[in-house]
């Protein structure tokens, strides 16, 4: 370097050799920024096609049911045998809350139980992968209509048996619509808050073909076990439970928290999620 050349920031211009060097550095930095921007964007895991119809209210009519989770049973037509077919639309609350507190308020307001009554709810739809949920929020005045009498529609129940499954506990609101990604480590704290807020946990299992199955989780008595589950969300776990199908959802009855085991570990270099978790459902003691 020329002894006469000396850089000082407060001078109007940098000496020629410094300016030339910095021009090269800026070119390298620009190339680095462009490469990093493209590489990081391209290599992100693909987001799901889940939808949350934010700002758009939809009315849904069906039979409200408290069990297995607060939901509306919506008739969709008849099957090949002429039987009525239904889809179950679980309800979720505003923010990171379950729908139960809203339902309690609505029942107080109407001075009647909504269970098994034909209702029309107004709310925001969330849907993904064949499952639909409805967010109900008191500010939207969600209960449009409620019947005087109860409907006597029994669910189609099928006892599957005791199953051993590996998968991940999710909060359904984020996974089926609100957030991308709505699962895994980055979303863990949010899932904890949603499940602590009363949202019904969903167990997500994927088989080797990449097909996803979703289950509702309750304790052996059919009660919510959010408290026990909130600390093991968003990580690979294995559980043993009695599985019972109610229409289009399967409920897992977990005898005790001891039947749930963490199976995950570090996953910095996994190639596919299937390599670290989410196996096929394994029926331990089936009844069909």
């Amino acid at each position: 370097m020329d002894n006469k050349e000396f850089y000082i920031g407060w001078m109007p211009a940098a000496p020629a050799s410094f300016a030339k060097h910095i021009r090269k550095v800026i070119l390298i930095l620009t190339a680095l920024i462009i490469t990093a921007g493209i590489l990081l964007a391209v290599q992100q895991k693909k987001f799901s096609t889940a939808s949350f119809e934010f700002g758009q209210l939809t009315e849904i009519t069906g039979v409200y049911q408290q069990f297995p989770v607060p939901s509306i049973k919506v008739m969709t037509g008849r099957d090949a045998y002429g039987h009525f077919s239904y889809i179950t639309v679980p309800l979720v609350g505003y923010g990171k809350f379950g729908a139960e507190s809203t339902i309690v308020e609505l029942e107080k307001e109407k001075n009647t139980s909504l269970d098994k009554k034909l209702v029309t709810f107004r709310g925001t739809l969330l849907y993904s992968d064949g499952k639909t949920l409805l967010q109900i929020d008191n500010t939207d005045k969600p209960l449009m209509q409620v019947s005087e009498t109860t409907e006597n529609i029994l669910p189609m129940v099928k006892e599957i048996g005791t199953v051993q499954l590996t998968g991940e506990v999710l909060d359904p609101k984020c996974y089926f619509g609100v957030m991308k990604p709505g699962q895994g480590k980055p979303h863990r704290d949010c899932a904890v808050r949603c499940i602590a807020g009363g949202m019904s946990p969903v167990f997500y299992v994927r088989n080797e073909k990449g097909e996803a199955n979703y289950y509702l989780i309750l304790d052996a008595n059919g009660k919510k076990m959010n408290e026990q589950l909130k600390d093991i969300v968003a990580e690979p776990i294995s559980l043993q439970a009695r599985a019972v199908q109610y229409d289009d959802w399967v409920v897992l009855y977990v005898d005790s928290p001891d039947k749930i085991k963490r199976t995950g570990g570090f996953s910095w270099f996994k190639i596919k999620d299937g390599d670290t978790y989410c196996g096929s459902p394994h029926i331990v003691n089936g009844s069909n």
Partner: peptide
């Protein structure tokens, strides 16, 4: 955090 979720090793490598 996020690297526990992402699949591609490029994030770890970077």
């Amino acid at each position: 955090g996020v690297i526990q979720y992402e699949n591609d090793p490029v994030f770890v490598i970077m």
